[in-house]
Amino acid sequence: MLDLTRTTTALLQGLHDVDNAEAWASFYGRYVPIMIGVARRLGLSEADAQDAAQETLATFVKEYRENKYDRDRGRLRSWLLTILRTRVAGQYRARAVRKEQQGVTFVGGVPDEKTTSDAWDVERRRTILLQAIDELRKVSKTSDQSVHIFEMLARDNRSAQDVADELGLTAQDVYRAKSRVAQRLREVVTKIESVYDAEE
């Protein structure tokens, strides 16, 4: 289950301990998916985005352990984004070099702060929503179909009646499931948001 027991601040303290794999893993689980998404939005391929995100995290942890990260001087996300932007720029450069070798001029610069920051917001929300629905699935009993119902309604844009017919339920059942899931999702999302907000 998603580790919601510790705030990011606590995780950051854990990162000081080289041996604390769990803090590292939690941190990874929290921020790498966001950074992959951001890098993708900035035009990197999936594989390049993964590399950039992981390198960013590694750099961050290293700098953090060297006490270069100062909470008062900037928020965690801007710290991470600064590193990530450099990484993305590095990827751009590499791509440019490849293109130039092929005789094509490639003009690319370091993505600006506003663009990356906006991308972060979108990706953070996306990551949290996915985590929330995962979380809900995990705590549901096998026989509980309500998350599935919610997904059918949300993803496939189907009508309640349509879903009810397929599952052999009444539309009323479907509505009830939908609002129950929505209610719980809101709770979980709020909880996850607060975990992120504590540091960002």
Partner: peptide, 10 residues
């Protein structure tokens, strides 16, 4: 919420 999730899930 449904709409937002819909997009993410898609």
């Amino acid at each position: 919420l449904l709409a937002e999730f819909g997009q993410v899930l898609r």
